[in-house]
Design a binder for these strands. Structure first.
Lengths: 202, 202
DNA sequence: CCGAAAGTAGCACAGTTGTGCTATAAAAGT
DNA sequence: ACTTTTATAGCACAACTGTGCTACTTTCGG
């Protein structure tokens, strides 16, 4: 056996280097050489863990998706009050601290590339669909009498719109303002529920 | 004087070529040579109209912003019913046909690059701020008694979120569904206005 | 002590990039 | 006819890219 190295750990370090390069210089500067230098490796050594550059980028994107999924799963506690649970889940989805802001920016970079890269697009669309399903579930739990598909579209767009704004204009799209927007939206969903229920609508 | 050529027209043709390259291959493939080939020119000739590549890209982004501004201005008719006017303006902002879908995808590509390019960032932030101001004006015209800043955040995020979804997942984020989401949102703004006015709120 | 396996580094090659530079072609004024 | 001005094309250079390939180093099994 060779030099004792945990390949999985190494891969994670490389992914962290990819993040730093993308945030600092952009996705198109995430070349094998630049990432290797950022990770403190040579390009040849990096290619031991990722045979090709597309593989490296796809792995990085997958890592982001998994991280978000893990955060959501950690909140899930389905017995909690639906309103609180929704607020907590949406809070995990939005870039409320520096680490998630980084994650969000990297995600946006990948989204843009997914428009012209079929492999990345498949991953992004999968995440998009999952998030849409999650929004539908939240809406259904809060306002089952409403037009849940329509309200899921609205909530989904609100969340991703806030995320984009947080990436482009973080000085105005601050965590408190994002929380206020989400909170107001959830309040209206609740009102909608009450109103429809009271008038027997459906 | 030389070969009779309208430089402004040529620039517009080149910008159209940039759009096609970005949509087909992505912003990082919008090299001087690729754009020139797409425009049916040589790279040397292209550089007659755009001295550097950053200048070419900045001009392209500026063109997008101006196009949107012109469409908005064409709707403005401030005497119309506020609700109809808001719906029409928001309709112009969203990718409701193939041309605006192309524009939207190119815009998203530039937004992602703006995260790491100060020049493009300045342009994107300017557009972002203008759009935010427009949302605030619409909200104020529809629900002046509401928390207009908060509601402007929500409307702005909804619009940009829908645009991103239309770029990434156009098969589900269709024009009718976008219109329905906008319409529902405007309805709630109106309800909010009525409710606050009826209860003397502020 | 030694070889096998695995990590690391680096070179090589062909392709692309931005941009500086020069040469040719065409149209207008003299 | 001749010059001037502009458009167009193309070459050249240095830098960077992904990736194939070869060497060296380190560690463990025997």
């Amino acid at each position: 056996m060779p030099k004792v190295v945990d390949p999985a750990r190494r891969r994670n370090e490389v992914v962290a280097a990819v993040w730093r390069v993308i945030r600092r210089d952009g996705l198109d500067r995430a070349s094998v050489r630049n990432v290797a230098r950022e990770a403190g490796l040579s390009a040849g050594s990096l290619r031991h863990y990722f045979a090709t550059q597309p593989e490296l980028l796809a792995f990085t994107l997958r890592t982001i998706i998994e991280r978000v999924e893990e955060r959501i799963a950690a909140v899930s506690a389905p017995t909690a009050d639906p309103r609180d649970r929704a607020a907590r889940i949406l809070d995990e989805l939005l870039p409320m601290d520096a680490e998630r802001a980084a994650e969000n920016n990297v995600w946006l970079a990948f989204t843009a590339r997914a428009l012209v890269d079929p492999d990345l697009r498949a991953l992004c669309e999968e995440a998009h669909t999952a998030l849409r399903a999650g929004c539908l579930a939240l809406v259904t739990s809060l306002a089952p009498e409403s037009d849940t598909e329509l309200e899921a579209d609205r909530l989904h767009a609100l969340v991703d719109g806030l995320a984009v704004h947080a990436a482009l204009h973080p000085q105005t799209t601050t965590p408190p303002r994002m929380r206020a927007a989400i909170s107001a939206h959830l309040d209206e969903l609740h009102d909608l529920h009450d109103h429809r229920a009271a008038t027997g609508g459906g």
